[in-house]
Computed example of a mutant assay.
Amino acid sequence: MEKFTAAMLLAAAGDSLGYRNYNWEICSSGVKIHEELKELGGLDKLVLSADKWPVSHNTLMHMATAEALVTDYYCLEDLYREMVKHYVDAIDKLQGRRPDPATIEGCSQLKPDNYLLAWHTPFNEKGSGFGAATKAMCIGMRYWKPERLETLIEVSIECGRMTHNHPTGFLGSLCTALFASYALQGKPLVKWGRDMLNVIPMAEEYCKKTIRHMAEYQEHWFYFEAKWQFYLEEREIEEDNMSKPVFPDQYDADERDKTYKKWSSEGRGGRRGHDAPMIAYDALLGAGGDWKELCSRAMFHGGESGATGSIAGCLFGLMYGISNVPKGLYQELEMKQRLEHLGEKLHQVSSKEK
């Protein structure tokens, strides 16, 4: 139970830190962010209050997904209709939080009044952004048991393509959901990336079965896999090898910014569905259970730091809980009670399987 509530709270805290009321979200220098953090007295001195450190659209959309997952749905189609309702409701709440344009566009194309096609949105050439990845960790919390893998694949893909109907986008939601399930299964962190790539063929099979937009998908499908393959080779993470990932000797804020840019597709780390989870994963591998180090790598960089912070915070909570995190980072957090409640409910529904 504690890890579920920790995950929901720390996803929001990571989002709030990386976003810093939009100031750090648009800053392109990790070095500058670290300097500003020092001026604020460092991480331990921060108090994340709703007025100065609001959460961004990442947290609101993650909560909307969780709200749907804890309802008493009869079948998966009912769950998707529930998600559609929550996403459409979220549009108004996202105003003023500088939401990702693809999320807004996707939500506006959902059809809550159309019983059969409520969640079917058109293929979107621009739907490759991080927004699908940041709202899907809770799917892995709901269906974390290994025997629920097929359900996890289906739900994370459908959830992803409601707003980001592009393989780079919705494979991001599959990736973060899988990582959350791996964290709860206690799978060694170093194996997550390779194991996730082994699930991609099952995702492709599922997409073929639903025969929507397959021609467009095939054109873009390989990109997500190729980027992850490149990343795992760079860290020297082999299929059957449990050895530690290899990091550069010099890996300070400036070097990380350069590396994250290299993994990105447009020179801004974490903007897409492949590299937002990648940066979060890399930060977890490098931080080794140290919250402060995780923040340094995932929340304070010159890319899409709210997105990467949200994913990293959630996964950290599932692995390590909240006891080593400074209380100021979650005690006055915006929507704290609701986040805790959703964590508890997710724990309940994932324990009593239908």
Score class of each variant (00 low, 15 high):
Glu2Val: 10
Thr5Met: 01
Leu9Trp: 00
Asn21Pro: 00
Asn21Gly: 12
Tyr22Gln: 12
Leu48Ile: 07
Ser49Arg: 11
Asp51Phe: 05
Trp53Lys: 10
Asn58Ile: 01
His62Arg: 13
Leu69Asp: 04
Ile91Leu: 14
Lys93Ile: 10
Gly96Gln: 11
Arg97Gly: 05
Pro101Ala: 14
Ala102Pro: 01
Gly106Glu: 06
Ser108Glu: 15
Pro112Thr: 14
Pro112Glu: 09
Pro112Gln: 12
Asn114Trp: 00
Asn114Gln: 05
Leu117Phe: 15
Leu117Asp: 07
Leu117Cys: 13
Leu117Ser: 15
Thr121Cys: 08
Thr121Met: 08
Phe123Lys: 05
Glu125Asn: 10
Ser128Leu: 03
Ala136Lys: 05
Ile139Lys: 03
Ile139Gln: 02
Gly140Trp: 06
Glu150Tyr: 10
Thr151Ile: 14
Ser156Ile: 14
Glu158Met: 14
Gly160Ile: 12
Asn165Tyr: 09
Thr168Asp: 08
Ser173Ala: 12
Ala177Arg: 03
Leu178Glu: 01
Ala180Ser: 15
Leu184Glu: 06
Leu189Tyr: 02
Trp192Met: 00
Pro201Ala: 13
Met202Gly: 08
Met202Thr: 11
Glu204Ile: 02
Glu204Lys: 14
Lys208Leu: 07
Glu219Ile: 12
Phe222Lys: 09
Tyr223Asn: 10
Glu225Ser: 11
Phe230Asn: 07
Tyr231Gln: 08
Arg235Trp: 04
Glu239Met: 07
Asn241Val: 07
Asn241Cys: 14
Met242Gly: 10
Pro245Phe: 09
Pro245Val: 05
Ala253Val: 11
Asp257Leu: 08
Thr259Ser: 04
Ser264Lys: 03
Arg271Glu: 07
Arg272Thr: 14
Arg272Gly: 12
Tyr281Pro: 00
Ala287Lys: 00
Gly289Leu: 05
Asp290Ser: 10
Leu294Glu: 06
Met299Arg: 00
His301Arg: 03
Gly302Lys: 02
Gly303Lys: 02
Gly306Trp: 00
Gly306His: 03
Thr308Leu: 04
Phe316Glu: 00
Met319Gln: 09
Ser323Phe: 03
Ser323Arg: 11
Val325Ala: 06
Pro326Ser: 15
Glu332Phe: 11
Glu334Asp: 08
Glu340Tyr: 01
Gly343Trp: 06
His347Cys: 08
His347Tyr: 15
Ser351Leu: 15
